[in-house]
Design a protein around this nucleic acid. Structure first.
Lengths: 211, 211
DNA sequence: ATGACGGTTAACCATTTGGTTGAACCAGGC
DNA sequence: GCCTGGTTCAACCAAATGGTTAACCGTCAT
């Protein structure tokens, strides 16, 4: 279920094990809470190997985080290809974005950890991308703005709307333990619950935007 | 802006300082990432005082967390008093819930930290409350179910709907650093942004539920 | 064979961190 | 004054943690 985060191809096998393990431990314990020994254990290697492949904890974190944030931003746009109707676009985005997060929950948790801890490193990356013009959600914002202009949907604020869509797609992953206690269905079969959630979210938001 | 989390009244002043500081540090760095020295610094006291008032790190965390989770659950129901129309109820809940989180963001961050870390302690508290019948969101679920039965809103799944409402109310706080980079308005005046968000969320969800 | 080299390991070191201690401080009651 | 109780602090200690080292493989070119 929790797949490997498809690290860089130029990495050796051991490097990928470390990378993978570090992502999961950092995602769970946070930048400072994570212990090098825990990462070594998760990667099933000797602690010294961590420093052989990555200089120190800080460097390891930065490499893992940088790679994760880039993958995250790429996934944003990837879910938006081929826009026919706005209805199809919204459906494709919700499905695609949720599918991406499901395939690598640890990546998302790491992003949230950064936010909780102040998001300094995150800020640097995002500002860079934003200035370069390829800020991830900008595409969706424009899609919604166009739909508003074309009269396809009500005159909502595109920025706020995108934030709402993203919120609903991500939050139930963030609070997964809580959700699984509250919703018996989510506890029994998480996969089915995620599918049901895609349908519900599209239905709710599409009706919320309809004229 | 970041108000004090109104600790238990039976606490002495020093105890409250510690409690308050611990909440903020745990919320930012997580259960294991938090350093006792950091908490002592934030509380502006000597490190030995922490152990004078609270046995050890684990106990301190548990007391802070227990108190936080209880306050959180109470706030859930508190936002639902006096339901006339469903429209008013929804509006009151969104406003009240967001206002509660705004008044104590650290409490919410602590809850999210617990979720990211697996939520074992959280699970114990929630299951207890759920079995006792006073599970926080149960009231909202029933309100929505009634509205569906009365034909006030479309035939949506109440459980999923509540999760969606809560997602949108909480997520922009969780990802506040990211949101502030993406939305210039949120960076300039967070308070005004939160207000705008209340309006937007009510508008989006109310239309999403309307028949 | 051998030696150079990437990879791997256990043992080790220095610093940080959680936690303790004994003395000092500071009321209020006698 | 001086005792007593709760409170506060600097210094201290043992364990945990990040990071290093020197030796040890295995293998491949010479």
């Amino acid at each position: 279920m929790t797949s490997s985060p498809t690290p860089l191809s130029e990495y050796s096998e051991t490097e990928q094990q470390i990378f993978d393990a570090a992502l999961h431990v950092f995602a769970r314990e946070g930048r400072h809470g994570a212990r090098m020994q825990a990462i070594a254990d998760a990667a099933d290697i000797n602690k010294a190997m961590l420093h052989y492949y990555f200089e120190d904890k800080e460097t390891l974190y930065e490499e893992v985080f940088t790679y994760t944030v880039e993958r995250f931003m790429a996934s944003f746009g990837a879910s938006l290809r081929e826009a026919s109707t706005f209805e199809n676009t919204l459906r494709a985005f919700i499905d695609g974005y949720i599918e991406f997060v499901r395939s690598d929950e640890a990546a998302m948790r790491l992003m949230i950890q950064e936010n909780l801890a102040g998001g300094d490193l995150l800020g640097a990356h995002l500002r860079e991308a934003t200035n370069a013009g390829d800020a991830p959600p900008q595409i969706l914002v424009e899609t919604i703005a166009s739909a508003v202009d074309a009269g396809e949907i009500r005159a909502v604020d595109p920025q706020h709307t995108v934030l709402s869509v993203v919120s609903t797609c991500l939050f139930f992953f963030v609070a997964r333990p809580t959700v699984q206690i509250m919703h018996p269905a989510a506890e029994d079969d998480w996969g089915a619950f995620v599918e049901a959630r895609k349908d519900h979210l599209f239905d709710l938001i599409y009706h919320g935007l309809a004229p």
